[in-house]
């Protein structure tokens, strides 16, 4: 059966991609941010995953409000980077793990999750940036196949934190029963605290971000017991994206070890960072 090698949580801020495009990752402004990804990158290289499940939200780049699914699952053989308004970025397409995607689709529906199933769809920075942060930017091809899971965090009602957690449980069941010996890494993305809209724009909660990074591994109940409104209040309206890390955390054992955490604030207009978790 497939094997879950670990869970990664990270910000997916678009300006990280822009910094990479412009070669600014070693410059004064960005170095502290990228330095914190040295360990995760070497961890991923050692783990050699075959499949990366990436949980993220579209930012009005691929999906419009005309039909916006609460959860969507990609089953495509290939995902191209989408044009977000500045033209498409010069990174390779992402090869899809079609076989695992369909297996997961069956498992999700069997377990009463009913995602939109997407067979031809592009991906925005929500998937691109975490892939670049953890796998580095390849010239030719990514060293791993991807399974994108989109979560609506753009238009209320967004799914509840509890629902994201439960989705993680179903994802784990799919990994544990998927025939073969694929090594799977799960990436929860988004956050940390930020608010881009309304008079509270620029809201950042440094204490809550630090507590999140410190305890997402050891005390997830602290975070699954919060309401969506709590997330908006504590982490800002766009910081509520953090619910997507709960899919990753829900997928892991109840006991995990925190191998690494990293926090830089402000990055663009957010608190930013990552964690590396391994099952105990």
């Amino acid at each position: 059966m497939a094997h879950l090698v670990g869970g990664l949580g990270t910000s997916h801020i678009p300006s990280i991609g822009v910094a990479l495009d412009r070669g600014q990752d070693t410059g004064d402004e960005w170095k502290p941010f990228f330095d914190g990804y040295d360990f995760p990158k070497s961890w991923v290289a050692e783990q050699k995953p075959d499949i990366a499940v990436v949980i993220f939200n579209d930012h009005g780049n691929v999906m419009f409000l005309d039909r916006l699914p609460t959860f969507a699952l990609g089953v495509a053989e290939r995902y191209e980077p989408v044009d977000e308004g500045w033209g498409p970025r010069d990174i390779p397409d992402f090869e899809g793990a079609e076989d695992f995607s369909w297996f997961l689709a069956d498992k999700m529906v069997e377990r009463h999750f009913d995602p939109m199933i997407a067979r031809e769809i592009e991906v925005d920075h929500g998937l691109q940036v975490p892939m670049e942060l953890f796998f580095g930017r390849p010239i030719e091809a990514w060293p791993v196949r991807v399974v994108p899971i989109w979560v609506n965090t753009l238009q209320y009602p967004i799914p509840t934190p509890q629902r994201c957690w439960e989705l993680g449980k179903v994802l784990r069941e799919a990994i544990d029963t998927f025939p073969g010996d694929d090594r799977v890494v799960v990436m929860g993305t988004g956050g940390l605290s930020h608010q881009l809209q309304g008079a509270r724009a620029g809201f950042i909660n440094r204490d809550a971000d630090r507590e999140w990074l410190e305890t997402i591994g050891s005390n997830p109940e602290r975070w699954t017991s919060m309401s969506r409104e709590d997330y908006v209040e504590v982490f800002g309206s766009e910081g509520a994206e953090l619910i997507m890390w709960l899919v990753m955390r829900g997928c892991m054992n109840s006991k995990v070890s925190l191998k690494h955490k990293h926090y830089v604030v402000p990055t663009s207009m957010t608190g930013a960072g990552c964690v590396v978790l391994e099952n105990c």
């Binding site: 502290p32 330095d35 360990f39 440094r206 990293h262 926090y263 830089v264 402000p266």
Partner: peptide, 8 residues
């Protein structure tokens, strides 16, 4: 946004 801080 405030002063820049970072730690690992």
């Amino acid at each position: 946004l405030g002063e820049k801080q970072w730690h690992t």
